[in-house]
Design a protein around this nucleic acid. Structure first.
Length: 217
DNA sequence: GAATAGATTGTCT
DNA sequence: GACAATCTATTCT
């Protein structure tokens, strides 16, 4: 995907109508993480719709997975959403300054979630750039979990939101969107998790410039 | 392109 | 008090 992408306008009505149903989220977390690559994350805020295509995700599968916040069944005010029904937002604050957005997966009671790590901006790039404090909307808007939350205006206020409602949701990509080849790799920055860090539970669009980190090996 | 340091605060077997 | 599912700027190569 090296050449220029045709600047086709994204139809807001499409993003409203193509909202994924609750049943989309009712599948095992690894399958959901893969299925989410290529879908569109849409946020309705005061300025209207803002959206990006998901190009990178990671699966977290507590209580066994030592990289997950729910490792060992840890259930606190922070992790509570992961124990609830699938298709809700799990937000967390990290490194003293960044928010991250996840989708709860698995059956209720299973603390599984999918971290969204990168988006290709589709709608509202200028708003994103303004929120990110950038002068241009060329690159760097959404290529990282903290960046995409800042660009879309997502934070703790979105904790627990039902993605089947109309404030924050996933949509099918518009007709004619390019097909993405999905690659896998180990997850990013989870070295503390020992052998769990080596599992190929990161899913990304191959050769896509909005992916956050160049995959190793 | 890679490696490093510093920022900054909620969470916590 | 330690650490974190990160980002930015800087300093290399």
């Amino acid at each position: 995907m090296r050449g220029r992408v045709a600047p086709s306008p994204v139809d807001e009505a499409w993003l409203e109508g193509a909202r994924l149903p609750r049943s989309f989220y009712e599948r095992p977390v690894l399958a959901l993480a893969r299925a989410m690559v290529g879908k569109v994350l849409v946020h309705r805020d005061a300025g209207g719709l803002i959206a990006g295509r998901i190009v990178e995700t990671e699966a977290y599968r507590g209580p066994q997975d030592l990289a997950a916040h729910s490792a060992g069944g840890r259930r606190t005010r922070r992790t509570e959403a992961m124990f609830g029904p699938p298709g809700r937002a799990y937000m967390y604050f990290i490194y003293g300054m960044h928010w991250a957005f996840n989708v709860v997966a698995g059956a209720e009671g299973q603390p599984h979630a999918v971290l969204v790590r990168a988006l290709e901006p589709l709608l509202g790039a200028e708003v994103m750039a303004a929120r990110r404090g950038l002068l241009t909307s060329a690159v760097g808007l959404c290529n990282g979990p903290g960046k995409l939350c800042q660009a879309l205006g997502l934070d703790g206020g979105h904790y627990g939101l039902d993605l089947a409602d109309n404030q924050l949701w996933l949509a099918e990509p518009p007709p004619g969107s390019p097909r993405l080849a999905v690659g896998t790799s180990p997850r990013i920055n989870v070295a503390y998790a020992g052998a769990w860090a080596d599992r190929p539970w990161r899913f990304y669009a191959r050769n896509h410039r909005a992916v956050s980190v160049t995959p190793r090996g």
